[in-house]
Amino acid sequence: MRQNPSFVLGDIPEIRRLIEQNPWVTLVSETADGLVASHYAVVLDPDRDDLTILGHVGRPDEAIHELGSHELLVIVQGPHGYISPGWYDDNPAVPTWNFVVAHLRAVPEILGDEENYRVLGHLVEHFEKRMPEPRLMEGTPANAEYARRISSGTVGFRLTPTRVTAKRKLSQNRPAETVERIIDQLENGVEYPNPALAAEMRRARR
């Protein structure tokens, strides 16, 4: 991803927030057979305050990705959307796309079976805890037995990025009144409503 100094996202807490709010990521590996991409949910490592993430792949994706033998690219995609030049002013302009994204790169650490099982439990709890009656992996003996059996079909990993490229392109290069007009269109317009992107633009202005 080409970086632009005007749009650099270098704040670790903000990148952590991006990951927390957009956990469905793309995993990309360059293997002996060419590029491979998969999609999985990840969570931040609860024992770290950096950008270390925990995740898993289903077998045989670990073999297809050659997981652990080379660098893995993790793409985190946040809110994004079309921006019409009609939302600017009367000067000549072209359409664009606003977005928030982060690329995390490193050779992932492959987890042992027990740690993978704990990570799977943490993953389930992370997403299930907001449910009125959470169904946790070890919530009942039957659940625990099933979870133990099914976890053998997964391979867990921990990735502490050695290279991070994060970008927040949210019309920061436009005048304040233009940004407000774009936000209004994203919040109240009928053609391309996108409240999540509008919220990111307001956050970037702060």
Rank of each mutant, 00 (worst) to 15 (best):
G58D: 15
D90M: 11
L44H: 12
I75L: 14
N173D: 15
A147W: 11
H56Q: 12
A106Q: 07
V42Y: 09
T52M: 07
V74L: 01
H126T: 06
P85W: 14
N173R: 12
E128V: 00
G81Q: 05
D113F: 11
N194G: 03
G156L: 02
A63V: 04
V76D: 01
N4S: 14
S69C: 00
L44E: 09
R203L: 09
L54Q: 11
Q21N: 14
V100Y: 00
R168T: 00
V190R: 13
A102M: 13
F7I: 05
H65C: 02
E125K: 10
P95F: 11
A32F: 05
A32W: 06
A144P: 00
R158Y: 08
I53A: 12
D61M: 15
E109W: 09
P141E: 07
V57E: 09
V25N: 04
L120V: 01
E145H: 07
R2D: 08
I150S: 13
I12R: 07
R130P: 00
Q3K: 13
F157Q: 03
N98Q: 08
L120C: 08
V124S: 02
E177H: 15
S171F: 14
G68M: 03
Y40D: 12
E66H: 04
R135A: 04
H126N: 01
E177V: 11
V36D: 10
E109I: 12
V76I: 14
W24T: 04
V119M: 11
L51W: 05
K169A: 13
T160V: 10
I183L: 06
S151C: 10
L136G: 00
I83L: 08
P60Y: 08
R59K: 15
I64P: 01
I19D: 03
N4P: 04
T178M: 11
V42E: 09
I12T: 13
E191Q: 15
I183K: 05
L54V: 14
R163A: 13
A198P: 07
E128Q: 07
I64C: 01
Q185G: 03
V155R: 06
L123Y: 00
Q3E: 15
Q77H: 04
E109F: 10
D33N: 14
R163N: 12
V8E: 11
R16D: 04
Q172M: 13
L35P: 08
L186P: 03
R202W: 08
T26D: 08
A32P: 04
P60E: 09
P141H: 07
H126C: 00
R174K: 15
H70E: 01
I19W: 06
N143I: 00
V76H: 01
E62Q: 14
L111N: 01
T96S: 10
V101Q: 13
